[in-house]
Amino acid sequence: MAERVVENLNQALHALLADDPALTVLGEDLVDPYGGAFKVTRGLSARWPERVLSTPLSEGGIVGVAGGLALAGQSAIVEIMFSDFVALAFDQLLNFASKSTAMYGRRVPMRLVVRCPTGGNRGYGPTHSQSPLKHFIGIPGLSVHEVSPFHDNRTVLAGMLATGRPGLLFEDKVLYTTRMYADGVVDELFRYDLIGPDADVARIRVDEEEQADCVLVVPGGLAARAVSVARELLLRDDIVCQVLVPSRLWPLDSDNLLPPIARAGRVVVAEESTAGGTWGAELAQVVHRRLWGSLRAPVRLVHSADSVIPTAAHLERTVLVQDTDIHQAVKEVVSGD
C-alpha cells in the first residue's frame, strides 16, 4: 500500500536536506520531539539540528529570514502552521521575495518555498480553515502549487526550488492522512498519468477512455474528492468525466490543461476557496478566451460559499464545497446542451 501524504512530504524534506547542504527548513514548533503541528517535519531536526529551526511566532519575520537566506544564495523552506497565518507574511512574499526576482533589473534567483497547511473539514473554525491561495494568484514572480496525492513531493519541492522563483505550496490538511496513488492506478475503473513535459498535470480517466463528456479541473486538495465524484458520475449517471489535477496552479499551466478541455468541450473547475477572485475564475477566463470555438458550455465554477467558515461540522458543511456540489455541477453542464 502506498505511503500516506504526510509521509511522502516528510520523506521529501529528508531527501532535500540530504541532497542540498544549503537548504534550511524553518517554522514554528518544527523540531523534535514535537515535529510540527501536522508532523510533516518529524525527525528532521534530529538529523540536521543546524538546518531545521523552530522559530518564534513571527510568520512575517520567518519568511523574511528565509528571503535573506535565499538572497544569500541558499535555499529555504518555511512551514506556516496554518495557511490562514500566511497573511502575516504577505508583505515579505508580495514586496520582497517575489519582487526581488526582477525588480533589480536582472534575474535574481530566490530559492524559497513557503509550505501552508490549508483548508477546512476539520472543525478548526474561521481562522484555521481557509484556503487563501486565491490571494496569491497573479503576483509577478510568485508561484503557487498545491500538494496532491498524485504528485511526489520530493519532485515538486525540488522543482519549485530549482526555478529560482519563490513559491507557496498549499497542503490540504485532510490529505495528510490519506494515501498517495502509485503506479498509475486509482481504482479498478480509473487510471492516471502525469502529462506535459514537466509532468505537472495529473490526468485521471477511465481506463483507455480518450473521450470524456466533461473535464473536471481541481487543485490537489480536492483531487480525491473529484475522483470519487467522477466514479459516482460514471456508475450512476453514465457520464464520463476526466479529472485534471495540476501541481502548479500559478502561473497557469495552460499548455497542458487546455487540450483535454478542448477535446471534451465542457469543463467544471472546483476548489475550496470561498467565492470571489478565485483561481478557477482566472482559469475560466483563459479557457473562454482560448477555447471559445471548442466549448459546448460555459466554464462552470464550483467553490465554497461567500462566508466565514464555521466551526461546528453541520455548519461547516453548509459553507465548504461538497462532493454533491461538484457532482451536480458536472451533471448540469453535461445535460445543458
Binding site: G60, G64, G67, G68
Partner: peptide
C-alpha cells in the same frame, strides 16, 4: 521589511 531579511543573511 529588510530587518528580518538581514537577519536571514546574518544567519548565513
Amino acid at each position: 521589511e529588510s530587518a528580518p531579511v538581514a537577519a536571514g543573511v546574518a544567519l548565513h
